[in-house]
Simulated assay, not measured.
Amino acid sequence: MIYIGVTGWGDHDRLYGDKLSPRNKLLEYGSHFPTVEVDASFYAVQPERNSKKWVADTPQGFQFVVKAYQGMTTHTRGEIPFQSRKEMFDAFHASLAPYQSAGKLAMVLFQFPPWFDCTRENVEYLRWCRAEMDNVPVSLEFRNQSWFTGKRREQTLDFMERESWIHAICDEPQSGEGSVPLVLQATNQEKTLVRFHGRNVYGWKKPSSGNWREVRYLYKYNRVELQEWVTRLRMLEKQSKDIFVLFNNNSGGDAAGNAKEMIELLNIEYEGLAPKQLDFF
């Protein structure tokens, strides 16, 4: 099955309009898409009460892709409020319990930064992370080209398969060392993740002025670009039982529209979505 959604549920005004209360957005989101990426978990390990609410706000069968906390993926934005890696991973595990109990955890996404290159030390850290996550499905996204350069491409894919990492395949700008090529190969027979970051090369290179994080994902896929992916997704579907597709190109509000268009192109009709809300007070 191909599950299509977007990253986060709060910033899609074209989906909800401008009158919907923020506390009801996930309720409404579940009437449009069967999956979502939880990005709040990247900035802070979420308390279980949040996870419980999000699980309760979505229909049975809905699937969450939960992004790993930034400290777990060697990002260093602000102070990490844990005394050790072990404590950090244990806290993150606890935050996953509501998703797991409800059968709504598709996977945890480990997205590593551009400076996380292919070295022995980093390979060992990936092994440690995988062991710490135990039986939780985990996907792996690189943002450094060295993992897929030359013979390392097959070595990386073989490593991911042996260590039970789900390949996070990315459609993203090709801008040198800080981006990865399109590698259309699954490493897990059960699940594969595909993330659409847009193709804004200028924004991806981190311009020196302005809000570069907003610019990075400022891109709207056209019909031809999406149509190219129909064949690719059908091919990946032969390699993995379930394909999770997430659009992350939302700086200009285009993610939800592109996701809807992809559903149309694939001729998918999802069953079990939440009923659409006529009004909220």
Rank of each mutant, 00 (worst) to 15 (best):
F82T: 07
S31L: 01
G272M: 03
Y29K: 02
D57E: 14
E154Y: 08
Q63R: 07
R127N: 14
F110K: 07
E48H: 03
M160W: 07
D39M: 01
G178P: 01
M107L: 15
W147L: 05
S95T: 05
V245N: 01
G176P: 10
G203D: 15
V230E: 02
V108S: 04
F196Y: 14
L126D: 07
K53D: 12
E269H: 09
R162P: 02
E163W: 04
Q239P: 00
M107E: 15
F82A: 11
A255K: 01
D279A: 10
Q155G: 03
T76K: 11
D13W: 00
E261Y: 01
E87I: 05
Y270Q: 08
F196E: 13
G5Y: 04
W204V: 08
L265N: 09
P114I: 07
V215R: 10
A168I: 00
V108L: 04
D18R: 12
N211F: 12
K260D: 12
K205P: 02
A131L: 00
M1F: 07
F148P: 09
W9N: 05
T192L: 05
W9T: 01
G253S: 08
Q189G: 06
E237A: 14
L236F: 01
K67N: 14
A106Q: 06
L26R: 04
L184V: 11
L233N: 03
N50S: 08
F89I: 14
T74S: 14
K238D: 13
I169H: 04
E190N: 14
L184E: 15
W128V: 11
V55A: 10
F82K: 12
G253P: 00
V180W: 00
T76E: 12
W9Y: 12
K53Y: 04
F82P: 07
G8C: 13
N249S: 08
H167T: 12
S31T: 03
N249H: 03
V136C: 11
G203Y: 10
Y202M: 06
Y125N: 13
V123P: 02
F33E: 03
E264N: 13
C118W: 11
M235Q: 15
E177K: 13
P114D: 14
Y29A: 02
F110V: 04
F112M: 13
V6Q: 06
D158W: 00
W147H: 05
T76N: 12
R216E: 11
I169K: 00
G150S: 05
D279H: 10
D11E: 07
N200R: 09
R130Q: 06
N188Y: 06
K241V: 12
W54A: 08
E172D: 03
T73H: 06
A68R: 04
S164R: 15
V36E: 10
S101R: 12
N144Y: 01
F62T: 08
